[in-house]
């Protein structure tokens, strides 16, 4: 399934940088926030949030290194 075919959010995915890394971050962001709402502050939720934020920053760094 292509992300830009998802109803309502599809045009948003299609409008971005045409980059699957950011598409995944856009998709997983609300899911992790919902998970925190359910799990509250636990090791699992903390790890998920840390992984997401660190991944976000690392991905921009990676983009800058691999930029032509």
């Amino acid at each position: 399934m292509r992300l830009d075919t998802i109803p309502v959010l599809g045009p948003l995915f299609g409008a971005g940088a045409d980059d699957h890394g950011f598409d995944l971050l856009l998709l997983f962001g609300p899911l992790i926030i919902c998970a925190i709402g359910i799990l509250h502050r636990s090791y699992v939720s903390f790890a998920l949030a840390l992984f997401y934020t660190a991944g976000f920053i690392a991905y921009i760094g990676y983009q800058s290194i691999t930029m032509p």
């Binding site: 948003l12 950011f22 856009l26 962001g29 926030i33 949030a49 934020t53 976000f56």
Partner: peptide, 13 residues
């Protein structure tokens, strides 16, 4: 909006 949403999720976390 794409940029704004990405930054919003990042900021919340």
């Amino acid at each position: 909006w794409w940029i704004f949403l990405l930054f919003t999720f990042f900021s919340i976390l």
